[in-house]
Amino acid sequence: MAKTMTQKAAPGLGLDADLARKLLRDMILIRRFEEKAAEAYALGKIGGFLHLSIGEEAVAAGATSALRPDDYAISTYREHGHCLVKGSDPRRVMAELFGRIDGLSKGKGGSMHLFDKEHNFLGGHAIVGAHLPLAAGVGFAIKYRGGDQVIVCYFGDGAVPEGEFHEALNLASLWKLPVVWICENNRYAMGTSLERALAQTEIYKFGQTYGIPCEPVDGMDVLVVRDAVARAVDRARHDKTPTLLEARTYRFRGHSMRDPAGAVYRTKEEVEREKLRDPILLFRDRALKAGVLSEDDAKKIEKDVNDLVDEAVAFAEASPEPEPSELFTDIFKEPA
């Protein structure tokens, strides 16, 4: 990371085996799932835009581990990971990518529009910045009903120069809404680096502007993410105070499958250097060294995840395409 982080690295203490297993499993699930999706894309089984979050898994896994199942999450088009670790069935997520009827959205949403009501996953939104006001609205509804859930809203650094980022942060702060804003700062919006987009590149500082707690977070360290999000969730749950977290991370792949090299706007050296901080390897090593996980545990996780993802692909492949009549269903709410 180019910028130094203010907080200390997480100690890795107080981490029990179950949690370690879960965090590692969630991160590997995202990685393997997306590797398989990339293969399927190359074979023409997935179309359109496919954005991978490989390299950024620690943010989704760490943040989600600090949530209750009835908390909400909402995200961008780079949301496979957020959706999977929120609890969605990988088979149905893959079927959605394949455009099949058993997909979460019956194949009508695709990779960029994953929704899973059962797990309070509010989507996959592909207009940069547009889902931030929606997150504030969900926070508004939680408060309106006197609930104690929170909503986590993931967005990219590319949303920060958009007006809706500022409108949403202002409203959430003004009205004290239980929103945890998580900017996944991977330093690029397509090919535009932070420096070319923002007059203030320390994104977390916008939290100061809107009078809310804010901090930069090492987005490659799943425990640091978990810790920061847990504190933010606590504030949101108990004081209805929103927080802006800037998770500094990096995408190892291109912007989408149509930018495979991802290298015209950044150097190979930079990409290689960042890959040294692979969040999965970092955490795996730490957990092994600390003795909370054994090699065998790690291998078993790998194997289980591989099986799960293979099964997801087989399921997606076997699922039928939507019937022609589906074109016209769900335009409006279908009568019960």
Partner: peptide, 26 residues
């Protein structure tokens, strides 16, 4: 004021708030 909500001048923001609130049942 809980049910009659004055907003600042932020049409995209407060319309989005309405849509988000509607997604979860308001």
């Amino acid at each position: 004021p809980k049910r009659i909500v004055d907003t600042p001048i932020a049409e995209s923001g407060f319309t989005g708030v309405g849509i988000g609130a509607a997604m979860v049942g308001l």
